[in-house]
């Protein structure tokens, strides 16, 4: 008996977004990174097109984040210099691009000035030749000053700038249009707001084909399944023809995982949970690996071991598990 064909037939395609600009394209990057373009759910190579594989962005910050020693030691002294940290990510960890976050701009951290932040952007652009994702510090008011200067410092480099929220999208649209960057649209684990932010960006004249969606990110144990469901639902909507949900998606796995108890405290506090040295990177890798299956296109990651693991995972998934 012939088995019925159970393949899903999707009608639409996820937008293809390219980050970075080479010399010919008005930038200084050695290569660009393209994500999206899928016509099926993640890794279902037998069902549709998956023209670009998911990518890993190395987490880099202007100031070392308040991370546990396990992670800081794994990265090494380079964590104190954004340029060296970025170089290490590219040269040693083999990441596809760099995600640069202005942690120090936060008024509660160092309150670094917009000019200082812009300088960091310039330095990192000089230090590495991969495309760049640039984030503010997360404080809307401060970011409205920080991001325009950072954006200008990277003018023409076709960076991905984060992030446009319901509350501050106008500034981001203006700078990204002026300096030719792409936008991360952000929603707080809320698919309806995610769609609404994209509508607002579109209304403001920004092409949704230049947008990557960010539903914040949750670490395993902290609302992970909510984010998973949203990524998956958004991807399904996009594949079914909802143009407002057809953007590639980004997850800040490193930024989230290394804040939670399970990745911060060792066995002395969490008895029976195993050594943090092993548990921490494993937690990051597990979260990243599962988000890949939900529909994440860009994973921001921090721990070198976790990065290595996910690079292998991506290759394995794309081979359909065959070695």
């Amino acid at each position: 008996m012939e088995l019925p064909d159970v393949k899903e037939k999707w009608t639409a395609q996820i937008n293809q977004v390219t980050i970075g600009a080479t010399k010919d394209q008005g930038g200084t990057r050695a290569r660009t990174v393209t994500v999206g373009g899928q016509t099926t759910m993640p890794f279902l190579t037998f069902e549709g097109e998956l023209p670009f594989k998911p990518v890993i962005a190395g987490y880099v910050a202007d100031t070392p984040p308040g991370w546990p020693e396990v992670l800081i030691n794994a990265i090494g002294k380079e964590i104190n210099s954004p340029e060296e940290w970025a170089q290490k990510c590219v040269e040693e960890y083999g990441v596809d691009l760099i995600s640069l976050k202005m942690v120090g701009a936060d008024p509660a951290v160092k309150d670094a000035s917009p000019a200082d932040c812009a300088r960091v952007v310039e330095d990192v652009l000089k230090a590495v030749d991969v495309p760049l994702i640039i984030w503010g510090c997360g404080d809307d008011e401060k970011d409205n000053h920080v991001l325009p200067e950072c954006s200008q410092a990277a003018k023409g480099e076709n960076c991905l700038i984060g992030s446009a929220k319901e509350s501050n999208y106008m500034t981001i649209v203006a700078i990204c249009k002026a300096d030719k960057h792409k936008i991360i649209s952000e929603a707080p684990v809320d698919i309806n707001i995610g769609k609404q932010v994209n509508i607002l960006l579109q209304d403001a004249g920004f092409d949704l084909k230049d947008v990557v969606m960010f539903q914040t990110t949750a670490a395993l144990g902290y609302g992970f399944d909510y984010v998973y469901t949203i990524l998956e639902r958004a991807r399904i909507a996009g594949l079914k023809g909802d143009k407002l949900m057809a953007s590639p998606q980004i997850c800040d796995v490193g930024g989230e995982v290394w804040r939670i108890k399970e990745a911060v405290v060792d066995e002395d506090v969490l008895t029976g949970w195993g050594k943090l040295e092993k548990r921490g990177p494993m937690w990051e890798a597990v979260c990243a690996g599962v988000y890949l299956q939900a529909g994440a296109d860009i994973l921001i990651m921090a721990h070198p071991e976790a990065i290595k693991n996910i690079q292998m995972t991506i290759d394995q998934f794309l081979k359909g598990g065959k070695e």
């Binding site: 309806n192 769609k195 609404q196 209304d203 639902r233 909507a237 949900m245």
Partner: peptide, 14 residues
């Protein structure tokens, strides 16, 4: 059948 957003009517007509 689709994902709700506050401006769903306006978005349809864009």
């Amino acid at each position: 059948k689709g994902i709700y957003a506050d401006s769903y009517i306006e978005a349809f007509r864009k």
